[in-house]
């Protein structure tokens, strides 16, 4: 399997595909830094609700300025696309290229082929997400001038992150990788099922568009949840809470929504991370700080959920692939 991982990684890093994806990540970084430069005051004010000084370092990642999107929002789009692009032709390109027969007539288990490709993809996603976070953080540390925002500092650069900030950021990094892995697992599943790469690229992309743009971004998910389980003002509090819970469950059918909730809790621990939170909204929320432990408890199911979804995709690809005939024609 090591041999397969090695080859896949070499392939990824030498491909134009990787270059393009990396450019996308850099766009996210650039956008994030620019937004932070312009909007860190708001982000700081929002997070100051939590601690005396606020999560200064985390604010770098959660700032937005006008139409310039928050770093995390761009990442929420770039990472799934990266996952899909890394996985959509994993198996079917080998099949159409006639290399699958040769590969599987070597002494390797069939699952090592899928595992190797999956792991190589995860490593690639890890590198991308890690680079993005480090770049934004690094720029913040050496380049930001916080003095105009009322900070009493001797030099330039945000203060070094507190341990809590580091943990929160690291967890954000982990769930981002898991989220990317889910999309890669999904597109790999389609690469096992479909003989043609066009199909295995298109279908996960459409699923992503539905789950992200329609469900989360355009708010269709909320509308549907509202239609299915309307919160009626006339009913008692208990019923209303139940109805709200139902809405939440419906919204969480989308992995993109799960991801968004999870990173909101981690990076914007202002209010319980329900619903769509933007910095602008967060400002008006009642201060309701939640501690690191509470945040962890809140996102634990999300993490489990995303890992299970990836595992399900993986298991299905695995079962189908094991049964498939490897014919070189």
């Amino acid at each position: 399997m090591i041999a397969i991982i090695r080859k896949e990684l070499a392939d990824h890093f030498n491909s134009i595909r990787f270059l393009v994806l990396f450019l996308l990540v850099l766009v996210a970084v650039g956008g994030g830094i620019y937004a932070a430069k312009q909007g860190i005051r708001e982000a700081l004010e929002a997070s100051r609700a939590v601690t005396e000084d606020g999560f200064v370092f985390l604010s770098l990642f959660t700032s937005s300025w006008g139409d310039i999107p928050i770093f995390t929002m761009v990442i929420a789009i770039v990472i799934p696309i990266t996952g899909i692009v890394l996985g959509f032709d994993a198996i079917n390109s080998e099949r159409t290229g006639g290399t699958l027969s040769r590969l599987l007539s070597q002494p390797v288990y069939r699952d090592s082929v899928i595992n190797g490709k999956f792991l190589a993809g995860i490593i690639t996603i890890t590198i991308m997400a890690g680079t993005a976070i480090l770049l934004v953080g690094g720029f913040g540390l050496i380049w930001f001038d916080l003095r105009p925002y009322g900070f009493n500092m001797t030099g330039i650069g945000v203060p070094f992150p507190t341990p809590e900030e580091i943990i929160r950021l690291f967890l954000y990094f982990v769930i981002t990788v898991v989220y990317g892995a889910f999309w890669m697992g999904l597109s790999m599943l389609f690469s096992v099922v479909f003989r043609r790469a066009a199909g295995s690229l298109l279908i996960p992309m459409v699923i992503f568009i539905i789950f992200y743009f329609f469900w989360v971004f355009l708010g269709f998910g909320g509308a549907i949840a509202n239609a299915v389980s309307p919160i009626t003002g006339s009913s008692d509090i208990a019923t209303q809470i139940q109805q709200a819970g139902m809405q939440q469950t419906i919204l969480r059918l989308s992995p993109s929504y799960l991801f968004r909730e999870a990173y909101a809790v981690l990076l914007l621990p202002v209010a319980k991370g329900l619903g769509v939170i933007t910095v602008a909204q967060a400002r008006f929320m009642v201060a309701n700080p939640i501690s690191l432990t509470q945040s962890l408890l809140a996102i634990w199911p999300h993490l489990i959920g995303m890992v299970s979804l990836s595992a399900i995709c993986f298991a299905i690809s695995y079962i189908i692939f094991m049964k498939q005939e490897i014919r070189a024609t």
């Binding site: 392939d11 030498n14 491909s15 290229g97 006639g98 290399t99 027969s101 040769r102 007539s105 070597q106 002494p107 390797v108 288990y109 070189a328 024609t329």
Partner: peptide, 19 residues
Amino acid sequence: LKVKRIVGYLPEEVGFYDN
């Protein structure tokens, strides 16, 4: 696996990683 360790197979339509 034991078979594949000792058998060399040339498929009907052989393909290589063209990069």
